[in-house]
Design a protein around this nucleic acid. Structure first.
Length: 791
DNA sequence: GAGCACTGC
């Protein structure tokens, strides 16, 4: 017998009497839908996949200077009770007033007048990402002010503040939120241009993400990715144009948000001289309630090591306030297994068919589909086969089943299928997903969640200089998040394929990314922003000393740091490029006369950093043969890098039908487009850095690269990857030059199964084995030459 | 013979 348990309110799932208050929201839902918003007012049903709400991209006209503009001096304050009279477009008033957050706006304003930092916990659907900045823009402290700032050149009058930045971990989130808030906040009819160019051509809302910037003159609210704000910190360490920074989704704990928190803490605890005495307000927003350590981090504003010039006497602690807002979530019944399951596939199958047989396909809230969380592609595909086989034995009269896989490497169309309702109404959808459905995308219609309790996580091992990708138990927080996916459209049920004891034994939260990844980039980011002693930099979870030490050494080898640990000119140049430090080092080497292969190196790096492999995995045997035939002319015996180069060169020479071209070769069109964007960005940066002349525009005719040229390119890559090399041992295994580990060439590599004198690999991942990925054939002698620092 | 998910003036 399965044991039943309901979560308490702190788990983020509403129960008992809370259902009554939820029903209040339900009565208001038709209004919300009438104004064509999703029910939580901001979440796209297929966030991360659809791009339709992003508007036209890269239009230079809409780019306004992000620097200090002198015009706007704030908006007029509204009269009377703001609760009854929201500012902005009246069309959205009803929907905004129905949000759980609406009634708390005066409270939020009051708290931020009295405190520097507000930690706000608001569950999905509370409206925090869209409403909080709108609540604050009229505050007096939020207006731009002319002040005297002491700088290197003496006292200078400057404008400080006036804008609010809202950070997001993902680009789609930033752009869609900006569009949404622009509709709400901009008063319609003020400018005719709004109609022609969309809501973001004018008004008080803008965004800035990689490849896409829309910051109209007079922008008060700017949605940015975390990385973008870190980049801004490089040229404006005091964030002078901002009155407030709202850090959204901090619970995701990306490396960028951790670094950002450190810099914000420094600004908060500093003497504010760089801002002419004007304080910076910070709102930290989280969707999960476990924010104890975050609160402590910001309130412990101990200046030690963070502000050398500051006097150590009686500095007041940063005042941190805390507020929790209820979300709009239906109750979810949770079932654990009574015993640990011996076979996860078996348990999954039983659970799925039990749900399918016992539960109706529809109720008053809509469809009742199933979402199952599994660890990876392989598990998903084998489960799909089993389910489909078993579904054929279903008796007549029982609704049919449609199984839909959902994972990152799937093509756009295949991913889209998982979001659409089944064509036949009498068919139940079963979506088998990886972690992608936990945060990145929302599958509509889900009322049942099946959770296997595991996820694949990447973990960097500084000692070995490699990472592993293995299935590990998820955290409680993650389990709660998965459970919550069943209660977004109506009351739901969650079936956990593990015991309640197992649940209790799970870690409270996931390990933050900064503890799971190579801190090479993080350390360079700090060094470039003036942090001399990186070990003293305030971080919520500081990495082990050994990880930081390794990163410092590696940066020294790359030439980014001098012997005394200070950043070099090369290091400063490296941070200008939005690629990992070793790639940046390769770009710089490629621009020197010795290698002179910058265009080719940009092409290769664009392909590699565009996301997952541009070559899709092929499932069926027949399409494999077909694609392999097409891919033949792309494959190069020099290895994966020269194969990428050939691919992007042929792609950019293709002028007829690029989508068709990708389809034939089973190439990920999304990643290929991304690669072309990165290529354009890197080319632009290199021109700006005077590393090369403006290259000719596409399409350029394709000429296969000569073996001599590819040798030059590979030697150039060794400037960044000399440590990632291996030599063929007498027993035909590859042994790494550093560490003497045995590595196998990954099966996805064009060099899989081949024996070369030596190899260079850009990635090093332990899964089933110790695998080298992105592999090239090199000569052992080249490694020696590359380590010689004179070149 | 194998593929968690994001991201960067």
């Amino acid at each position: 017998m399965a044991k039943k348990r309901k979560t308490d309110a702190s788990d983020g799932i509403r129960v008992g009497d809370k259902i009554l208050s939820l029903s209040g929201y339900l009565t208001k839902r038709p209004k919300l839908e009438a104004s064509s918003t999703s029910k939580d007012g901001l979440t796209l049903s297929n966030e991360g996949v659809s791009t339709k709400n992003q508007g036209p991209s890269n239009s230079k006209e809409d780019l306004s200077k992000e620097g200090v503009s002198t015009k706007t001096e704030g908006l007029p304050l509204s009269q009377g009770d703001r609760r009854l009279k929201p500012i902005g477009n009246p069309k959205y008033f009803d929907a905004r007033q129905a949000l759980p957050l609406w009634s708390r706006q005066d409270d939020i304003r009051q708290r931020l007048r009295q405190n520097d930092v507000l930690v706000l916990v608001g569950e999905t659907g509370s409206g925090k990402s869209t409403q909080v900045p709108q609540f604050l823009i009229q505050e007096d402290w939020c207006q731009r002010k002319k002040v005297n700032v002491k700088g290197d050149g003496g006292v200078q009058e400057m404008a400080v503040g006036g804008m609010i930045a809202v950070t997001q971990p993902r680009r789609v989130a930033a752009t869609t939120l900006a569009h949404r808030v622009a509709k709400e906040a901009n008063i319609p009819g003020k400018k005719k241009d709004t109609e022609r160019h969309g809501p973001l051509s004018d008004g008080i809302v803008g965004y800035s993400v990689r490849f896409d910037h829309r910051v109209p003159k007079g922008t008060k609210i700017k949605y940015v990715t975390e990385g973008m704000l870190l980049q801004e910190l490089l040229r404006d360490p005091h964030l002078r144009q901002y009155s407030a920074i709202i850090v959204d989704e901090i619970h995701e704990r990306s490396v960028d948000v951790d670094l950002l928190s450190g810099f914000l803490k420094q600004i908060l605890s500093g003497d504010k001289a760089g801002r002419g005495g004007i304080p910076l307000k910070v709102v930290i927003m989280s969707a999960t309630a476990n924010v104890g350590s975050i609160k402590k981090f910001f309130s412990d504003a101990d200046p030690e090591g963070s502000e050398e010039s500051a006097p150590p006497v009686t500095r007041p602690k940063t005042s941190v306030d805390f507020l929790q807002i209820e979300g709009r979530q239906f109750p979810v019944d949770i079932t654990h297994t009574s015993k640990p399951v011996p076979d996860i596939q078996d348990a999954l199958l039983n659970t799925l068919f039990k749900i399918h047989k016992q539960e109706s396909l529809f109720d008053k809230h809509g469809r009742k589909d199933i979402l199952a969380f599994l660890t990876g592609q392989e598990e998903i595909e084998s489960a799909q086969r089993l389910i489909e086989e078993h579904a054929e034995t279903l008796p007549a009269g029982v609704p049919k089943i449609a199984v839909l896989p959902l994972f990152g490497q799937l093509s756009m169309e295949a991913q889209h299928k998982a979001f659409q309702p089944t064509k036949d109404k009498n068919t139940r959808k079963i979506v088998l997903a990886t972690n992608i459905a936990e945060t990145s995308v929302t599958v509509p219609g889900v009322r049942f969640v099946v959770d296997c309790g595991k996820a694949k996580v990447k973990q960097y091992r500084p000692r070995l200089g490699m990472e592993s990708l293995l299935a590990k138990p998820i955290s409680k927080s993650s389990a709660i998040q998965r459970t919550g996916r069943a209660g977004r459209e109506g009351p739901g049920k969650c079936f956990r394929l593990y015991t309640e004891e197992t649940y209790e034994s799970l870690e409270k939260t996931d390990l933050p990314e900064i503890l799971r990844t190579d801190v090479l980039n993080a350390v360079l980011t700090m060094k470039a922003r003036g942090i001399d002693d990186v070990l003293a930099f305030p971080l919520m979870d500081p990495p082990e000393f050994e990880s930081v030490e390794k990163a410092l050494l590696h940066l020294h080898i790359l030439g980014a740091l001098a012997d005394d640990g200070s950043i070099t000119d090369i290091g400063r140049k490296m941070v200008m490029f939005p690629v990992p430090p070793p790639y940046a080092r390769v770009l710089i080497a490629a621009a020197t006369p010795k290698y002179d292969c910058l265009l080719e190196v940009i092409d290769i790096i664009s392909c590699i950093t565009a996301g997952d492999d541009i070559f899709l995995q092929i499932q069926s045997e027949e399409t494999k043969e077909e694609a392999e035939e097409f891919r033949k002319e792309l494959r190069r015996r020099e290895g994966d890098l020269i194969t990428y180069l050939t691919t992007i060169q042929q792609y950019s020479a293709e002028n007829a039908d690029r989508v068709r071209w990708c389809k034939d070769r089973k190439i990920n069109t999304r990643n290929m487009k991304q690669a072309m964007n990165i290529r354009k960005q890197l080319r632009g940066l290199c021109v700006k850095q005077k590393m090369m002349e403006q290259p000719p525009a596409d399409p350029q005719p394709f000429y296969p690269i000569t073996p001599e040229r590819s040798a030059t390119i590979l030697k150039c890559f060794l400037k960044g990857f000399a440590l990632k090399t291996a030599i063929l041992a007498p027993d035909n295994s590859y042994v790494t030059a550093h560490g003497k580990h045995v590595v196998a060439v990954h099966p996805a590599s064009v060099l899989h199964g081949q024996k070369k004198e030596a190899i260079m690999f850009l990635e090093h991942v332990y899964t089933q084995k110790n695998y080298a990925k992105k592999v090239s054939a090199i000569e052992a002698q080249w490694i020696v030459e590359a380590v010689d620092r004179s070149g």
